[in-house]
Amino acid sequence: MEVRTIKVFTTVDNINLHTQVVDMSMTYGQQFGPTYLDGADVTKIKPHNSHEGKTFYVLPNDDTLRVEAFEYYHTTDPSFLGRYMSALNHTKKWKYPQVNGLTSIKWADNNCYLATALLTLQQIELKFNPPALQDAYYRARAGEAANFCALILAYCNKTVGELGDVRETMSYLFQHANLDSCKRVLNVVCKTCGQQQTTLKGVEAVMYMGTLSYEQFKKGVQIPCTCGKQATKYLVQQESPFVMMSAPPAQYELKHGTFTCASEYTGNYQCGHYKHITSKETLYCIDGALLTKSSEYKGPITDVFYKENSYTTTIK
């Protein structure tokens, strides 16, 4: 009895394709271990004539594949690729409408935090270190965002349907971005203890939790000093293409032309909904596939993004 075979390709990165001759009487799992086709788990399936010449994702289970996976995804987590594939199996079914010149995501599976993050990423200057993220990001900007969303979920250790947080998501993504040249110098002034300067680099240099107003941050924000008295913390120097200011959701007025974009969060910790506000020729609110415009805006804002380049204080 002759062994019926077909020729397929296996890959971990969709760049390096490895030619395989597979036995049609055995499952993919018996031949390769966990195997995925377009995100779908085909591990328990036997090869079919229609699979001839198709590319299958496999887990990096030998040295060659491990090197290829690390170079593309910059992670050695053995569960990463499987999590990416199972997320992709959902995100490829989502709709990605162009809204006001940006790629958004039609609401499904509690994905409003991903839509808000995706919209924000198209408006701030950011370059990702893992080629996987950078490639998928370019495709997302062009309207094909399924891979990018699935990668975000995998890097953030999230599953489809789980509630997510924009600030946490951005923080994970910033860790995989090139923020080497970003720098922030802060000064804390206390009447009792004097003053202390701190220099922050990388992710810490672009994120701040405690106030939404970048102007206020430049002037000074009140913080408790270690001595128990009130101290003032203010920005001395900022070198970065953008800054992200966050605070627990509270009524906040966004003035046209003073910011790049913002995240609105309605609801409580267990259950809520994100919308995205962007400042173009007027203010726009993007909620999944829905767009509304207004000249002014007041609502429960939790993150505001500002364009920056270089700032030095005039406070002496």
Rank of each mutant, 00 (worst) to 15 (best):
R83D: 05
K219C: 10
G82S: 14
V58D: 00
D38T: 09
Y155H: 03
G164M: 01
D77P: 05
Q134G: 06
E2T: 11
K92Y: 07
E264P: 01
T120G: 05
D63K: 08
G29C: 10
L151W: 03
C227F: 01
C285R: 07
Q196K: 14
T5H: 10
S171W: 15
A150Y: 00
K95C: 15
G164S: 03
D165W: 01
V12W: 06
K44G: 13
S294A: 12
K316M: 15
Y36K: 02
Y96K: 03
S310E: 15
H74L: 15
K54C: 14
D303S: 00
Q196E: 10
Q98E: 10
Y57W: 13
P78M: 09
S86H: 06
Y274C: 06
C149M: 12
K191A: 15
K54D: 12
H90T: 12
M170Q: 01
Q216T: 08
F9Q: 14
G53F: 11
T159L: 09
T198Y: 13
K316T: 06
F32C: 12
C182L: 02
D109P: 03
I223K: 05
Y138P: 08
Y28D: 05
Y269Q: 15
S295D: 15
A231D: 01
N16L: 07
Y96E: 08
S263P: 01
P224K: 13
R184Y: 00
V304G: 01
P34C: 10
T11D: 02
E168W: 06
F242H: 01
F80C: 04
H256K: 15
M170A: 02
P130C: 08
Y36F: 10
P78Q: 10
F56Y: 09
M26I: 12
G202Q: 02
N61D: 09
L121A: 09
F32A: 07
T75M: 08
F9A: 14
I315T: 15
K7S: 14
D135F: 08
G101L: 04
N178Q: 10
Y172W: 12
Y138L: 15
K307V: 12
G299D: 05
C182D: 04
S294Y: 14
K201E: 07
C182I: 03
Q237H: 14
Y96P: 04
L121Q: 00
L200I: 10
T192R: 12
Y311P: 08
C271S: 10
F56H: 04
A150Q: 05
K233D: 00
P224V: 14
G194M: 05
Q31P: 05
V22D: 05
A140Q: 03
N111R: 03
Q123G: 05
Y297W: 10
K255R: 12
L235A: 02
N111I: 03
L290A: 15
G82I: 12
K183F: 10
Q237D: 08
F148Q: 01
G101E: 04
M244K: 00
P78H: 09
S213N: 11
Q270C: 11
T76Q: 15
V203K: 11
E71L: 09
E68Q: 08
L153C: 07
N14Q: 13
T313I: 11
S50M: 13
G161W: 05
M85E: 01
S213P: 02
D13G: 06
L173I: 08
V8T: 08
E296S: 11
L114R: 05
S279F: 01
M245Y: 01
H48V: 12
L283A: 01
A108H: 04
N110M: 04
H51K: 04
N157E: 08
K191N: 12
C112P: 05
L200M: 09
E264C: 06
T302R: 00
Q122N: 03
F174C: 03
Y297T: 02
M207F: 06
I124V: 08
K127F: 12
T169L: 09
Y311M: 11
A145W: 08
L114N: 01
E308W: 05
V12S: 07
L81I: 08
M26S: 08
T302F: 00
K7Y: 11
P34I: 06
P78D: 14
T11G: 02
G143M: 03
V203I: 08
Y234L: 07
N89F: 13
L200N: 07
N110L: 04
K218W: 07
S310F: 09
T75C: 09
R83M: 09
M207Q: 08
G143P: 03
N61R: 11
D165R: 00
G82L: 14
S79D: 14
K183R: 14
K46P: 12
F56R: 03
D38R: 09
L121G: 03
R4S: 13
L235Y: 01
S104G: 07
E253T: 10
G39M: 09
N147C: 11
Q30F: 06
A146I: 04
A69W: 07
F80Y: 04
H273Y: 00
G194Q: 02
A247G: 07
F259Y: 01
E215R: 06
I277W: 10
T260Y: 06
C227E: 03
I315Q: 15
R141P: 04
P47Q: 03
L65T: 14
L151H: 01
H176C: 07
G53E: 14
Q251H: 15
Y208Q: 06
S246T: 00
Q195I: 11
I286Q: 03
E239V: 12
N16W: 06
D62I: 07
V3H: 14
R83L: 09
L163I: 00
L163P: 11
T266A: 07
A262Y: 00
Y284P: 01
V67Y: 15
G194C: 00
A87Q: 08
Q31F: 12
I6G: 06
Q216P: 00
L235P: 04
L291G: 09
I152T: 10
M245P: 01
V99S: 07
V185P: 03
A289N: 10
T169F: 02
S240A: 06
E204S: 08
D77I: 03
Q197Y: 07
Q98L: 14
T35V: 14
T198V: 13
R66E: 11
Y57R: 05
K95V: 11
E71Q: 11
P241F: 02
G288F: 03
P241N: 07
I105E: 02
D38Q: 12
K280V: 09
N268K: 07
A69N: 04
I277L: 06
Y214F: 13
S246D: 00
D135T: 09
M1I: 01
F305N: 00
G161H: 04
E2R: 11
N157A: 06
I315L: 15
G194H: 02
A117S: 12
E52P: 08
L254V: 04
Y265R: 02
D135G: 07
K307R: 12
V21I: 11
H256M: 10
T116Y: 05
H74D: 04
I152P: 00
E125R: 07
A177K: 05
Q222S: 13
